[in-house]
Computed example of a mutant assay.
Amino acid sequence: MTTILIVDDDSRIVELVETHLLEKGYQTIKAANGMDALDQLKKHSCDLAIVDVMMPFMDGLQLTKEIRKKYNIPILLLTAKDQITDKEAGYEAGTDDYLVKPFEPLELLFRVKALLRRYDVQEDTLLRIGNITVNTNTFEVTVDQRSLFLPPKEFDLLVYFIQHKKQILSRDQLIEQVWGADFSGDERTVDVHVKRLREHFKEISPFVQIKTIRGIGYMLEETE
């Protein structure tokens, strides 16, 4: 799975960026400053870094220089400034791209994909949990190498659950992300699709379960 390092001392920005990256199937590693980011890079293999310019202990420009010394990964700088001199400093430090805050999440995602392509990072289209493998390109679901057909919305719901495994997801959240904000149905639609997914996997993948969180929604987890 493609792993992206998010470095920012503003937890709200980190959460915003992480939320949109997770929704697209990326894995994330978080750091609150440059020193923390270098420690994370020693522990984890990352495919791209999103770095804020203004941070304590080590700013984004210095961090970019340090990353460039040891790692060949794309770097996207985030900054609240929109001055040509700041951009020049960023590019001289070794950044690949520059995004001014506040930014549109879609633009961030476009730039991330472009940088991954530029560095020829192969984005993982396979999602896995337990003995279930989902290919988001071919829409194929396999359980222990046995193919399983799912209708489109059941497939989309399964993908979203796997991308957010071990997270409590409300019915409203599932409707908005899987069916769309303009969906005119009700919460029972989610319940029906969850019931169908459970029926598909209860015998062939008993350790992967969609648990009901009373009064809220559901959570996908692997029990063994």
Rank of each mutant, 00 (worst) to 15 (best):
I132H: 10
Q27S: 09
I210T: 09
E222K: 12
L78F: 11
Q62L: 10
R117M: 12
K30L: 09
F57H: 09
I13S: 13
D120S: 13
G25F: 00
I168H: 06
L127V: 01
P56I: 02
L63F: 14
Y91G: 04
E104P: 08
G25D: 10
K70C: 00
L5A: 11
Y218D: 06
D172R: 00
T133Q: 12
R111M: 10
D86H: 02
Y119E: 15
K69F: 03
R128N: 11
M54N: 13
V178Y: 01
F161V: 09
L157D: 03
Q167Y: 02
A37C: 12
I210D: 10
T95W: 01
E199K: 10
L126W: 08
Q145P: 00
P152H: 14
G217H: 07
K70F: 00
P151F: 04
K81H: 13
K43G: 06
D8Y: 02
H193C: 01
Q173F: 03
T28Q: 12
E88S: 05
E88F: 01
R171K: 07
R118V: 11
H164G: 07
L61I: 15
D182P: 00
L78S: 06
E203H: 10
G215L: 12
M55P: 11
A80G: 15
E176K: 07
K30M: 15
T95I: 12
T189D: 06
Q177A: 13
E221T: 09
E224A: 15
T142A: 12
S205G: 01
R214C: 06
K165Y: 03
D96I: 01
S184I: 02
L76W: 01
L16Y: 07
P105N: 10
M55S: 09
L158S: 08
L106A: 10
V53M: 04
N131P: 03
K153L: 14
R12V: 10
E66W: 09
Q177C: 00
L127N: 02
R196S: 11
V190H: 06
D59W: 02
K113N: 12
K153R: 11
T125H: 14
T223S: 05
A181C: 08
T212L: 05
L169P: 01
V53E: 02
E23R: 12
K195I: 03
T133C: 11
M54K: 12
A49V: 05
Y160I: 02
I6K: 12
L16W: 05
G130Q: 09
E221K: 13
L220F: 06
K202E: 15
K211V: 08
L109W: 10
T3S: 08
Y91P: 06
S205K: 13
R214T: 09
R198M: 14
L108C: 11
D59E: 08
F207H: 15
L99H: 14
E123F: 04
